[in-house]
């Protein structure tokens, strides 16, 4: 079975770690995995995407338009920017808190999250998550990537087992943060399993 998962957000939000955990966990389950990352000039403050492709029928390193089963969006406008990758009937898990462009103070863009959320609601089935709220108990927005993984797993849309993901998280985060990251994952998992999608 092929599965294409796109992760999108803004440089510095932890998208790369999320994609590495998914890819490694899929490989641990015995699946063939390919992925691709944005590297270079766009990494700081720019739009970034990770493409994770699971299965033997994926040739291109990038997900073609209309092929993604799941989009994990760290920011609402980035979800809309990359929505063309979603296949019909695919799911979007998206943070509802807008991150304004770094040039916002200099040249206001008038960008607000609400417009993006309404657009997503009219287009596809989405799970909306308020990142500020879910990260609050953990004291930092840095845990959102792991919470988001938990939500995707809990919703049943990721196709990778909970224990496999947890073991990869343990392997890939510094030992002193392993426990809190695992808790973040479980918090997300519980949200995802109640999402009813």
């Amino acid at each position: 079975m092929n599965k294409d998962i796109m992760i999108c957000g803004i440089g510095g939000q932890g998208t790369v770690l999320a994609s590495k955990i998914i890819a490694a966990a899929a490989a641990e389950q015995g699946d063939t995995v390919h992925s691709a990352e944005t590297i270079g000039m766009a990494q700081r403050g720019g739009s970034v995407t990770s493409h994770v492709r699971i299965g033997d029928e994926a040739f291109s390193p990038l997900i073609p338009n209309g092929s993604a089963d799941l989009i994990l969006a760290f920011e609402p406008a980035e979800a809309v920017r990359n929505l063309r990758y979603l296949k019909e009937g695919g799911t979007v898990v998206v943070n509802t808190c807008a991150v304004k462009p770094v040039t916002e103070a200099l040249r206001p863009s008038g960008y607000e999250a609400g417009v993006m959320i309404d657009y997503l609601k009219s287009r596809c089935s989405s799970i909306f998550v308020d990142a500020d709220k879910v990260c609050e108990p953990f004291g930092s927005s840095k845990f959102f990537n792991i919470i988001l993984l938990g939500i995707a797993c809990g919703s049943g849309k990721l196709g990778i087992g909970k224990e496999t993901l947890l073991s990869q998280i343990e392997k890939r985060v510094p030992a002193k943060y392993a426990e809190i990251n695992k808790n973040a994952f479980i918090t997300g998992f519980n949200i995802g399993s109640k999402a009813g999608i």
Binding site: S109, Y111, V115
Partner: peptide, 9 residues
């Protein structure tokens, strides 16, 4: 909807 541009700085 119009998307915010995110130029590298």
């Amino acid at each position: 909807p119009p998307l915010p541009a995110r130029p590298p700085v």
